[in-house]
């Protein structure tokens, strides 16, 4: 898994590439918690390059979401592939996370 960070319209875009599992999720957690500690008000997760996610990855995002919500920040996601979206839907988390098709949709909402 690889993580790239960029700025977009005042938010931090976290581009995740590859598979998120028990091995890689601690790295993702470190990155998310780094931004939570800095109280970044808008985190936008680019899922376009994520080919797999397991329960540890989902748990990492739940923890990240709770972290940003604790200071009134937002976490948005976009570009989820159907197989990844299906996992969020099955977990009933598609209603919990703000999920969009594109980064423009995420930023304009």
């Amino acid at each position: 898994m690889e993580i790239n960070i960029r700025e977009y319209k005042g938010g931090k875009v976290i581009e995740v590439l590859g598979e998120i599992d028990l091995y890689s999720s601690p790295l993702l957690r470190n990155q998310l918690m780094f931004f939570v500690k800095k109280k970044e008000s808008l985190l936008i997760v680019d899922f376009g390059g994520v080919s797999y996610i397991d329960s540890s990855g989902i748990a990492t995002f739940v923890e990240g979401l709770k972290g940003v919500m604790s200071f009134g920040g937002k976490m948005k996601m976009f570009g989820l592939r159907p197989a990844i979206m299906e996992i969020f839907s099955f977990s009933k988390l598609d209603k919990v996370f703000d999920i969009y098709g594109t980064i423009e949709d995420a930023c304009n909402s």
Partner: peptide
């Protein structure tokens, strides 16, 4: 309980599915 939002506890659901 899937209606509760908290980290963890999903793996068992994935296995049983």
């Amino acid at each position: 309980d899937l209606s509760k939002v908290k980290p963890g506890g999903l793996g068992t659901h994935f296995i049983r599915r």
